[in-house]
């Protein structure tokens, strides 16, 4: 019995040390990627190519999800608000929830599972098939040539995707409450515009999504680059990308929200 407890504690300790080690390694890799980003900035064509794969190919899922989330928000918000006779505030509700929270967070979660996992799998497979070693032997740094462009493409596309998600959501809310239910259109927009502040709500939402983009892209490229060069290794890394990014997004969201809305309301 005592033996089992001791081995259990040892296992926990081992895991903690192991993850700390990995975290440090990941941080070093992140710095390395930043330092080697000059190539991708000089040859922006590389980033544009990756923008296609991370950004453009995520468009459909982001737009459709945004529309549905907005429609649900409109429906739920209307149900609750009409009990208090303030159904005209439904525009405010939809817009504020989307711009402040749901837009950046849900878009980032979708982005992690759509583009993040693809980045990890691609880099992991390139490693497993020795493409990265081959690049190194050709005197081309794989971090500068393969990793950095994918990282920057992720960072750039995330705020755009989050903004599109929010716009589609607002449109979805408008569709449900104004077009289907019949809330006054003028009140819907004016209430929204009166209560959504550019600097506090919209700019902060964009800043959030920018941070989420950095987190997802950094995790995705690191997991891919660090993946064991086998089929199981790559599939495990892909799963880890989605899990770790989702946790990172939600954790970061709390921290950023605490910073941004401190002292207000």
């Amino acid at each position: 019995m005592l033996k089992r407890i001791i081995s259990g504690i040892r296992g926990i300790g081992h895991r903690v040390i192991d993850s700390t080690w990995r975290l440090g390694y990941a941080a070093r890799f992140f710095i390395l990627v930043l330092l080697k980003s000059t190539t991708s900035l000089r040859r922006f064509g590389l980033v544009i190519r990756e923008l296609y794969f991370t950004g453009v190919l995520s468009l459909i899922i982001i737009l459709v999800s945004g529309l549905f989330v907005g429609m649900v928000l409109g429906l739920q918000g209307y149900e609750t608000l009409q009990k208090f006779g303030s159904e005209s505030a439904v525009g405010t509700l939809v817009a504020l929830s989307l711009v402040r929270e749901l837009g950046p967070v849900v878009a980032a979660l979708l982005f992690a599972s759509r583009a993040g996992s693809a980045i990890t799998a691609e880099i992991g497979l390139m490693k497993a098939t020795e493409q990265l070693s081959a690049m190194g032997m050709m005197a081309v740094d794989p971090v500068a040539r393969v990793v950095a462009p994918r990282f920057w493409a992720g960072v750039i596309s995330m705020p755009f995707l989050a903004a599109m998600f929010s716009v589609m959501g607002v449109f979805g809310g408008y569709l449900v409450t104004v077009v289907f239910i019949g809330v006054d259109e003028g009140l819907f927009w004016s209430q929204m515009q009166n209560n959504v502040d550019f600097r506090i709500d919209i700019a902060n939402g964009v800043i959030k999504s920018f941070f989420f983009g950095i987190a997802v892209a950094a995790i995705a490229v690191f997991e891919g680059y660090d993946a064991p060069p086998t089929a199981e290794g790559v599939s495990g890394a892909t799963t880890r990308t989605v899990v770790t990014s989702s946790l990172a997004i939600l954790g970061l969201d709390f921290i950023l929200t605490a910073f941004m809305f401190r002292g207000i309301s």
């Binding site: 923008l51 596309s157 755009f160 929010s166 929204m192 600097r199």
Partner: peptide
């Protein structure tokens, strides 16, 4: 590919503009 990426960026900037002007109150006083 360039065309699609250009389209994507335009769409993103458009979304940001709509958020600031139509959803937010940048147009009224900011």
């Amino acid at each position: 590919m360039d065309l699609w990426v250009g389209f994507f960026v335009l769409l993103g900037i458009g979304a940001l503009l709509i958020l600031s002007l139509k959803v937010g109150n940048l147009s009224t006083y900011g």
